[in-house]
């Protein structure tokens, strides 16, 4: 008798939990038409600005933006969990299946050091040697006699992927590097450590860190626009199938004059084919 009652109550508990979950997900406000965007943490702040500008233009449309990483963005676009996925790296061949990829901007990657560091310029080879732990002291490249703390991003990060293909060119990043999980925390480590070196999105460089010229070219806006500074990666929108309706009009807005103005004002570059 008692055990039967327990079973019944247990069943009710399960059901009520299931119901709660269901109603939570199923409820949708239909007052506004929605565009759901999810993906790269690097692209996130810029898409938020675009969303804000777009909502001003089209008050009937609401743009929801979430950050979870490039891979999350690509997967959610594939599984149609969102309308637009964002990525800060090129897609792998097996990921491209059925997805329409649009480059919305390009972003420079800056090599940064502590402002007190005397080193101003490094060649691509030197940066590669630092990250593969063949150069271990600043003394070897014209700085103080102190060991180098090189800071990198976690495996799978879009920024790391871009850094690897542009700078490392197949050479592995040594495992003894410090690993941080966002542009901001890489910058924080470099700000607090006099002998650290790191790489972050150029748009996130501030006055507390010093950028390094790569092969003699400093990452100024001019050098980025004229293509002299080579450490540049794409920001991508990924959509399942051909974009249509609201999604298409949002992408058109982003690629159009007003959208690009928002992005370039924040230090990004317009896509090459535009």
């Amino acid at each position: 008798m008692r055990s039967k009652m327990k079973t019944v109550i247990l069943a009710i508990a399960f059901l009520s939990v299931a119901l709660c979950l269901d109603s939570g997900c199923g409820k949708r406000q239909d007052r506004h038409a929605r565009i759901r965007i999810s993906g790269s943490t690097s692209v996130f702040p810029f898409v938020e600005m675009l969303a804000e500008a777009y909502e001003k233009l089209r008050p009937d449309i609401q743009v929801d933006v979430q950050a979870g990483g490039s891979t999350v963005g690509i997967i959610s676009a594939r599984d149609e969990l969102c309308d637009i996925g964002t990525s800060s790296r090129q897609l792998h061949e097996e990921e491209k299946n059925g997805l329409k990829i649009t480059e919305i901007a390009r972003d420079g990657i800056a090599i940064i050091v502590h402002p007190s560091n005397h080193v101003d310029s490094l060649s691509t080879e030197q940066i590669r040697d630092i990250y593969s732990h063949r150069i271990t002291s600043w003394k070897e490249i014209g700085g103080d006699d102190a060991s180098i703390a090189f800071v990198t991003r976690e495996e799978g990060s879009g920024t790391r992927g871009a850094f690897c293909s542009i700078i490392m060119k197949g050479v592995k990043i040594a495992t003894r590097g410090l690993v941080q999980d966002s542009n901001g925390s890489v910058r924080e480590v470099v700000v607090t450590s006099p002998y650290a070196i790191g790489y972050i999105s150029l748009a996130l460089v501030n006055e507390k860190v010093k950028t390094i010229a790569v092969d003699g070219v400093s990452p100024t806006h001019e050098n980025l626009v004229n293509g002299k500074y080579g450490v540049v990666r794409p920001f991508l929108f990924v959509v399942k199938g051909e974009p249509e309706g609201q999604v298409k009009s949002f992408i058109d807005f982003v690629l159009g004059e007003e959208g690009q103005k928002v992005l370039t004002k924040e230090g990004l570059l317009s896509p090459l084919n535009k």
Binding site: T41, G68, T71, I74, E154, E155, G156, G158, V179, D181
Partner: peptide, 12 residues
Amino acid sequence: IALEMGYATGEH
């Protein structure tokens, strides 16, 4: 886990 979960797919 916390560092790499955001970007990991498949076997990773």
